[in-house]
């Protein structure tokens, strides 16, 4: 199933609705970066509210997307991480540099990107 990428002004919004296989995550990364490149988006929001598990692969993938997006000039905010998921991620002991910003929900994610733009 293709995951839709919405465009709102110069911000892309991706809402992950269900658990993704590794291959689907890779496809999604590809699609997002393609889209950023195509429309010249300045911001990217990935909403993972629906995810009850974020394992190291998913976390690395999100991080990789964020890093690549930054290189393409688009700041990334991951929103909607569940509290249990957040704590588990920390306990997992990922020692990756989070190139990715996080926010509680879509609204706050948009706020962060807008503030950035105003500066």
């Amino acid at each position: 199933m293709k995951i839709p990428i919405l465009k709102m002004e110069d911000i892309l919004i991706v809402t992950i609705q269900s658990e993704l296989t590794d291959r689907e995550i890779e496809e999604l990364s590809h699609d997002i970066l393609d889209m950023i490149n195509k429309v010249g988006a300045e911001g990217l929001i990935i909403d993972i509210t629906a995810l009850k598990v974020v394992d190291s692969f998913m976390a690395r993938s999100l991080n990789a997307i964020a890093n690549a997006a930054t290189l393409l000039g688009s700041e990334t905010v991951v929103v909607g991480i569940q509290p249990a998921v957040a704590l588990t991620l920390v306990e997992l002991g990922l020692r990756i540099s989070w190139g990715v910003k996080t926010a509680l929900n879509l609204e706050k994610g948009l706020e962060i990107l807008r503030k950035k733009k105003d500066k």
Binding site: V79, P83, A86, L89, V90, E91, T102, A103, L104, K108
Partner: peptide, 12 residues
């Protein structure tokens, strides 16, 4: 430390 990191993931 864990609390701080997890809170950050929630945007705080």
């Amino acid at each position: 430390l864990k609390t701080v990191q997890a809170a950050k993931l929630l945007g705080a």
